[in-house]
Every structure is written in C-alpha cells, then in structure tokens.
C-alpha cells in the first residue's frame, strides 16, 4: 500500500495531475467540512473570538450526521440484499 502510494507520488505533478488518493477519497471530505464550518460561523458569529468553538461544534455535528447517514444507508443496503 505504502509502496504504491510512493510510486504514484513520484510521478505526481501538483495541480497538473489529480492527487493520487483514489482509495482514500472519502477522507478528503473532512477538510471541506472544516472549511465550511469556519466560513459559516465567521459569517454567523457576532464576535470572531466565538468562531473557533462554534466551528468545532458544527464540524462535529456535520461529521456525526455524515457517519449516521453512512451507518443508516449501510444497514438499509444490508436489509435490501437479503
């Protein structure tokens, strides 16, 4: 796994070719959620010092929501497979 990743990284040209993360694409949703949380709470909060705490809370909620949705869909798929 690490060898494959290293081989792909050696040929990788940033911005010209896609990032060689074919098997880990779902982890790329985490920085997106962090960015959305920060911008949303920066717009919403009256004082900027509230932002780190509020953004952490909403990021956790998004993460839990996505995990719950994934778990629910997994169970539904298993039930439909029977």
């Amino acid at each position: 796994m690490v060898g494959t990743l290293l081989a792909a990284t050696e040929e990788f040209r940033p911005f010209w070719q896609p990032l060689p993360v074919w098997d880990y694409w779902y982890l790329l949703l985490l920085p997106l959620c962090v960015g959305i949380s920060i911008v949303y709470k920066s717009i919403k909060c009256r004082e900027m010092k509230q932002v780190p705490r509020e953004a952490t809370v909403i990021f956790s909620m998004i993460l839990l929501g996505m995990l719950a949705a994934a778990g629910g869909l997994y169970v539904l798929m298993r039930l439909l497979e029977r």
Partner: peptide, 10 residues
C-alpha cells in the same frame, strides 16, 4: 478550499 480543490482534481 479553492486551491485544495485544484490540488485534488488538477
């Protein structure tokens, strides 16, 4: 976010 998007997909 924009730059990371370009990094991920080219």
């Amino acid at each position: 976010l924009f730059a990371v998007g370009l990094l991920i997909g080219g």
